[in-house]
Design a protein around this nucleic acid. Structure first.
Length: 345
DNA sequence: AACTCGGGGGC
DNA sequence: GCCCCAGAGTT
């Protein structure tokens, strides 16, 4: 199978098997950009509802450049990797100021924008502008590793660079956007990472070295295990006459700039909370919860504390307002549910 | 090169 | 539980 045959086989497969996805309806550069940012380390199925809501709420780059930070955070609530949203707005401002309000079409200028790295620059320039650029994501890496039976560690920089060159060598002279998407699509739906790949549905089953040699389970090489550090925390539903206290997280670090219930480091008992909140009318232990991040784990105790006096520094909100306007990350979902279930308190 | 940064789906 | 996902930014 020569290069032309490879391209034709892949594009034919794509034409017959591509999924209907909202960012493919009207793939203007802005839509492609937003979708690519949302799709970073995030599954297609998770992105779809966020993308549709986001485009309705923020239809253009100039809308994005001037969006209120809290609204932006709310539109990203639950999607994770929240710096993506901040960088998205930052890049929109850069585009308005330096690129006449239009997304640049070439990889180099795209790379200068916040939140756009090598993969996303290649993806946007090929998908939105049909440029002859490679976009190497986890799918493409895996597909090529299997095609060529590359048993090396794909986290290695040199191995990735070699595969990047191999991808660039087969890029077509037309339909570059479809070619980029087709490589990822076949990786996501046929040449899948977990479980067995669906080689019987693959147009390359007769040239794929991993398939021919029975190595699809061994390739790509398993990445080494990552250990998470554990943190104990105590989450407080601080209530004053049916309203709840929340606070804004610092604008750097984990869950930056999002809102949260008042919480403390460690697992506190009722006596410790009594001395810390002398104006408490009642202290009731509620649900415990665990939340897993990529690199750490929160083990949470929960307390519902009714107060008799106002507190400084914190934000007092109605339960409806808390749910409808403040972006509260999924780590606190158990305690959000507690409030919703107990509304009326 | 290693670490930070979220959350969830599928097994 | 465990793996990994249309990765980028920082250290």
């Amino acid at each position: 199978m020569d290069k032309i045959q490879f391209q034709t086989a892949l594009l034919d497969w794509y034409d017959q098997n591509k999924r209907i996805l909202p960012w493919r309806d009207n793939p203007n550069p802005y839509h492609v950009w937003v979708s690519e940012i949302m799709l970073q380390q995030t599954r297609v199925e998770a992105v779809i509802p966020y993308f549709e809501r986001f485009i309705k709420a923020v239809p253009t780059i100039s809308d994005l450049a001037t969006i209120e930070d809290d609204l932006l955070a709310k539109l990203w609530e639950g999607l994770g990797y929240y710096s993506r949203a901040k960088n998205l707005k930052k890049a929109a401002i850069q585009i308005v100021e330096k690129h006449n309000g239009k997304l640049p079409d070439n990889k180099q200028d795209l790379l200068s924008l916040s939140g756009i790295g090598p993969y996303t620059a290649g993806a946007i320039s090929s998908i939105a502008f049909d440029k002859r650029e490679a976009a190497m994501d986890g799918n493409v890496l895996r597909v090529f590793a299997r095609l060529l039976a590359n048993t090396r560690d794909l986290s290695n920089t040199q191995v990735r660079a070699a595969i990047q060159t191999q991808v660039e060598d087969v890029l077509p002279n037309t339909r570059n956007g479809d070619f980029t998407q087709a490589l990822m699509e076949i990786g996501a739906t046929v040449c899948i990472p977990n479980g067995s790949p669906h080689c019987e549905k693959c147009p390359f089953q007769e040239i794929c070295k991993a398939a021919l040699e029975g190595l699809t389970e061994q390739i790509p090489l398993k990445r080494k295990k990552i250990y998470r550090r554990l943190q104990n925390r105590t989450i407080l539903i601080l209530e004053l006459d049916g309203q709840i206290y929340i606070e804004k997280r610092p604008d750097k670090g984990l869950l930056a700039g999002l809102y949260q219930f008042i919480n403390l480091s460690g697992h506190l008992n009722e006596a410790e909370l009594e001395s810390r909140f002398p104006s408490a009318i009642s202290i009731q232990k509620i649900d415990s919860a665990k939340h897993i991040f990529s690199h750490l784990e929160w083990h949470m105790f929960g307390y519902h504390i009714q107060l008799s006096k106002k507190m400084d520094d914190y934000i007092l909100v109605d339960p409806e307002e808390l749910v409808n306007t403040y972006s509260i990350p999924s780590a606190f979902q158990t305690y959000k549910d507690y409030i919703l279930n107990k509304k009326g308190l």
